[in-house]
């Protein structure tokens, strides 16, 4: 309800119900809350806009095809982000390939198969807690397990070790997203499936998963968007900051050392020369474009699957 423009004339009614005498005060409170909410919105948007403008003003002039196709260099004007960009893409694809099947599988098990026991509840709470563990902790775990103990497989500080670490980091998010999507499917569909003599897997694979897949994909891509910006765990496992070659397109490629966009940006920002700071700004733009592309993919995929229904 918006307040009337002028003070409304008192309605003289014969009924028992008299209009509240402090109606004007109630309108005022209404208005105050509306303004407070508006201010909150503006603060959020303005901060974001200032950040973006600052980055774009700094970085945009530096952005060129050369910047994308050059390797990092000691000379700021020649330095590019080819190897971090390619490294990020390798890292993300490998992370997705590891985390998606495991996360979705665990989510399906916990939601559809596991009995509602105390053990299941403990696992559930722990997974929710894992999602809140600081990423540096995952980095330390990755350093010990994937870089040191699994060295024969990962060959140390490689793409594979990095991807395994990031996969661990986003697993809880994917599991939770999968469970939420499954839970949103009405139980009547499951019952209808079972009543036709279908087994649990037949019901899940043919009736439930197709409906849950848009939600699962959205959750996964949002989780990957988190992974793409993670710097701390990669630094913890000792990802390099200067790489002047690309991973070979073969199985050995997974075992090559790598660098990634956030690491390169972090490295450039911490240099004393101002020119490198410009490079960092340009790198941030590239990172944000990649992120935007991923989120767009999530939305397109979701709409596509929803239409297919």
């Amino acid at each position: 309800m918006t307040a009337p423009q002028s003070t409304p004339a008192k309605i003289t009614s014969p009924s028992m119900f008299q209009p509240s005498p402090n109606l004007a005060k109630r309108y005022k409170i209404d208005r105050i809350f509306e303004i407070a909410a508006l201010i909150s919105t503006i603060v959020g948007l303005v901060v974001l806009a200032v950040l973006l403008t600052d980055v774009v003003l700094d970085g945009l002039p530096r952005l060129s095809l050369n910047f994308l196709t050059n390797y990092p260099s000691r000379k700021p004007e020649q330095a590019g982000i080819l190897s971090p960009l390619v490294g990020t893409i390798w890292l993300l694809l490998t992370t997705a390939a590891i985390a998606f099947p495991i996360g979705v599988g665990a989510g399906i098990f916990l939601e559809e198969f596991a009995a509602d026991t105390l053990a299941a509840k403990i696992i559930e709470i722990n997974i929710a807690n894992l999602a809140g563990v600081p990423s540096i902790i995952y980095g330390l775990l990755g350093l010990e397990v994937f870089v040191r103990i699994m060295e024969p497989i990962t060959k140390g500080r490689s793409i594979l070790a990095g991807a395994l670490t990031l996969a661990l980091l986003i697993l809880p998010i994917i599991i939770v997203a999968t469970r939420e999507s499954l839970r949103a499917i009405p139980n009547s569909l499951r019952m209808a499936g079972y009543a036709l003599g279908a087994t649990r897997w037949q019901v899940i694979s043919e009736q439930i998963l197709p409906l849950a897949i848009p939600g699962i994909l959205t959750g996964t891509i949002l989780a990957l968007s988190r992974a793409i910006g993670e710097t701390a765990p990669l630094i913890a496992i000792g990802a390099l900051t200067f790489i002047a070659y690309l991973p070979h397109l073969s199985l050995e490629g997974f075992q090559t050392p790598f660098t990634a966009l956030p690491i390169q940006i972090y490295n450039w920002v911490s240099r004393p020369q101002v020119e490198f700071h410009t490079n960092a700004a340009a790198g941030i733009i590239v990172l944000m474009v990649v992120l935007l592309l991923m989120n767009t993919t999530a939305i397109i995929l979701r709409n596509k699957f929803q239409k297919a229904r």
Binding site: S188, L189, M191, A192, A195, P210, R309
Partner: peptide, 17 residues
Amino acid sequence: ICRRIGMVFQKPTPFPK
């Protein structure tokens, strides 16, 4: 048993297919 004793529910539950 489900195969030989079928069931129709209160709310129509067509699969979204």
